[in-house]
């Protein structure tokens, strides 16, 4: 379980920061506009005097929560679909494989932009649904390839020979066999989802209160000549979040 230590630690730190500091990430203090790091504002202030420590920790927490939820749903949907298709084999497996290839290669970011632009005030749920539409594909593909191996295994053959219905074989045998590999994919998918969400909010499709990693980076870019610390906080937070989520998928055992 050591792979979960880093994400857990990060979340804990962010939660503690959020609880301890009375500064609201949405609170503006115009007198402290773009202030450098100091005692009262350890990370300094951004546009409008917003406390960067509070903003970055809240934005990181929200981003990681979204990424975790979407990744978990993608794992559930993708693994089930891939395992089912793998168990059936034949043309079903081929079609699902093709669909996965298509979805993964497709410029879905541009489509996501187009779809989200049609929504007046895109909420986290809208963003989550749009991201989920492509996030399931790597899990399905992994489950498919794992199933190719598993189908030949004797305990699955035995279960089927004993007359076990297809869904029981799926739930009892096929899906558990695919879970170890899926767990590895979970980390890299969650990391990619965090970055995708940040990219969307960087382009202006984030929550309206501006508490998002991409919006923070956008602030940093705008203020980079006058106050580079804002950019450092934003990009640092995103980097740390992405790397920590990746750590769940560490292949070194």
């Amino acid at each position: 379980m050591s792979r979960l230590v880093w994400p857990a630690a990060l979340i804990l730190v962010a939660l503690v920061v959020r609880a301890a500091r009375s500064a609201d990430p949405r609170r503006l203090d115009l007198s402290a506009e773009l202030a450098r790091p100091s005692g009262s504002h350890p990370f300094g202030c951004g546009e409008g005097g917003v406390d960067l420590l509070a903003l970055s920790s809240e934005a990181l927490l929200r981003g990681m929560a979204l990424a975790a939820v979407v990744a978990a749903l993608a794992l559930a949907i993708g693994t089930s679909l891939g395992a089912w298709a793998g168990l059936r084999g034949g043309s079903t497996a081929r079609h699902v494989q093709r669909m996965c290839d298509f979805v993964q290669a497709f410029p879905s970011f541009v489509v996501a932009l187009g779809v989200l632009a049609a929504i007046p005030r895109p909420t986290r749920v809208h963003v989550a649904v749009v991201l989920l539409a492509t996030a399931w594909a790597p899990f399905a593909r992994l489950a498919l390839s794992e199933l190719r191996v598993v189908r030949g295994l004797q305990y699955v053959e035995a279960a089927r020979a004993l007359g076990a219905p297809a869904h029981r074989v799926l739930v009892r045998h096929a899906i558990p066999a695919t879970l170890p590999v899926a767990r590895a994919q979970l980390g890299s998918s969650a990391s990619a989802l965090l970055v995708a969400d940040a990219a969307l909010s960087f382009l202006g499709l984030g929550p309206s209160d501006g508490v998002a990693l991409g919006a923070l980076i956008d602030q940093g870019v705008g203020a980079s000549l006058r106050a580079p610390h804002v950019l450092l906080v934003g990009t640092g937070a995103l980097c740390v979040g992405a790397l920590v989520l990746q750590a769940i998928a560490d292949p070194k055992r």
Binding site: V195, A198, F202, G214, I217, L231, T235, L238, C239, L243
Partner: peptide, 11 residues
Amino acid sequence: ASVPLLAFAPA
């Protein structure tokens, strides 16, 4: 593969 473009490009 692990450091996101959005993070290192601005920096």
